[in-house]
Amino acid sequence: MGRSFEQYQKRKLISSYFSVVLSIGLVLFLLGALGLLLLNTKKMADHFKEQITISLFLKDSAKEVEVDQLLKSLEVMEYTKLATYVSKEAAAEKHSEEIGENFLEFLGYNPLKNSIDIQLNADFVSPEQIEEIAAELSKKKHVDEVSYDKPLVGLLSENVKRISFWILVASAVFTFIAMLLINSSIRLSIYSKRFIIKTMQMVGATKTFIRRPFIWTNVKLGMLGAILALLGLGGVLYYLDQNFPEMDLFHDIPQLAILFGSVFVLGVLISWISTYMAAQRFLNLRTDELYY
């Protein structure tokens, strides 16, 4: 009978520890994922910004040598990420594929112009800067017309600012919620041992002596939860890197190391503080208050 009760208590204790580790792990995983999103917000924003293209339509009188010189001069500009020459034949072929029919047969001639497509560096993608760049490019000798999607540029810049702001707000709110959830899990775990705490106190044990094993146990659980969260984050990073290599998530290893280290330290720190506060609360209760 005594052995069965002992096994029951052991299973109950393991179940309690497992619950705390799982709660801490899930909360830290979500917090780490949000941190990962926050760190990569600029990178993702830059990726979308660099898809913006300025098209320079060239005059028919422009010679091949002059076009090559213009292309080379554009490639060395600080705002240029990539400059590509597109012949009117290639443009016609691409347009035919998009509309699903050969419009050259219908028209009898090619109305398109040779062009140079410029993809800009992300730092230069804003309505004001692109307007200045377009004005400068339109003055070049062999350029007939400069074209870009002006509404898209404005919409992209506005949305990037809005999303960045709300991610910061969400990060702050979620960090606070994470602390509450971890604190609640640890507090419930210590609540089940409140009578043991009071008994130890009544036989003369000091508060420090009583708190120490609870703090050490929950700090270890916090470490296990943090490791669980980091394994999950590592899996997510690997999956994203395999399926979206253009995001180059493993490019900045020190940044990832700081994020992973922060998640681990946060798990340990919150566990320590929550255990200290919960244990202190039950140490300060009167015996008759333990039943409420």
Rank of each mutant, 00 (worst) to 15 (best):
N159D: 06
L30P: 00
L155Q: 15
I273M: 15
P151D: 09
F29L: 03
L36A: 04
R281H: 15
F282I: 08
M77F: 11
I133S: 01
S189C: 02
E6S: 14
A226E: 08
A229V: 06
S271L: 09
R281F: 15
G232E: 06
S184N: 14
S138V: 07
L30W: 00
L230K: 05
I182F: 02
Y238A: 14
F209N: 10
G225D: 07
N102H: 07
L38T: 05
E93F: 10
V219Q: 11
L58S: 10
I215F: 04
Q280E: 15
S87N: 09
Y238H: 12
A45S: 13
F214A: 06
S171F: 07
S55P: 12
W166A: 01
E75G: 09
N110Q: 01
K42Q: 13
G154N: 14
T41A: 13
D68M: 14
Y291V: 04
N110D: 02
R194W: 03
S73D: 14
K113L: 04
S19A: 03
A62Q: 13
V169I: 09
Y8R: 11
I227Q: 07
E50Y: 01
G267Q: 11
E105K: 11
E289Y: 07
L231W: 10
F176T: 02
H251Q: 13
L237P: 04
R11Y: 03
Y8N: 05
S271W: 10
I177P: 01
I163P: 02
E64H: 15
E132W: 00
R194V: 03
K94I: 09
E131H: 01
T175F: 10
K139Y: 04
L266G: 12
L224I: 12
T199M: 09
R3L: 15
T275D: 14
N183E: 02
